[in-house]
């Protein structure tokens, strides 16, 4: 009987895993580009026990430190960049010239669809200015983006 129970348990634990907690284990850890995934042991525990050991999240609690940013419309570019792991994706997309993370940035900054191609191209051309060093933070990246936009005729209207 005990064997059976364990068996059931083992199967059961395989369904519906929620490998990561709302808010994320790396919550508040920082927002530099090329970060690693921190808090791995915690992540593993959450994965193995098929759940989350964190507070539930749902409503309109706000946060901009890479934790749960639950205000859905309040990304405004900067908040989006502060999400853990996002800066790295944006950096890669800017280097290449396109990508989903860069598209999301244009949307969250309110860039009109007709100007998005131009925005992406401008970011691509100014990659070295925007990602000036490997320790650059989300705040600095946002400032650099704004500066680049201001010196561009079309994009200046957005900043």
């Amino acid at each position: 009987m005990r064997k059976m129970l364990l068996a059931v348990a083992l199967i059961g634990s395989s369904f519906g895993a929620q490998a990561n907690a709302p808010g994320g284990p790396g919550c508040g850890w920082g927002n530099m580009v090329f970060e690693g995934k921190s808090g791995l042991p915690v992540h593993l525990v959450a994965t193995i026990v098929n759940g989350t050991s964190y507070n539930k999240t749902f409503g309109i609690t706000s946060g901009t430190n890479g934790c749960d940013t639950s205000v859905p419309l309040a990304y405004q570019g900067k908040n989006m960049l502060a999400q853990q792991g996002v800066l790295e994706e944006v950096a890669q997309d800017m280097a290449v010239g396109d990508g989903e993370a860069l598209t999301a940035l244009t949307v969250s900054m309110g860039i009109q669809p007709r100007d998005r191609g131009h925005f992406k191209q401008t970011m691509h051309e100014n990659f070295n200015t925007i990602f000036s060093e490997e320790d650059v933070t989300a705040d600095e990246v946002m400032t650099n983006i704004r500066n680049v936009m201001e010196s561009d005729e079309k994009l200046a209207t957005y900043s």
């Binding site: 990561n20 709302p22 999240t57 749902f58 409503g59």
Partner: peptide
């Protein structure tokens, strides 16, 4: 519980 988080985190 249900949770509601940014999809980019997922």
């Amino acid at each position: 519980y249900f949770s509601n988080v940014p999809y980019m985190n997922k």
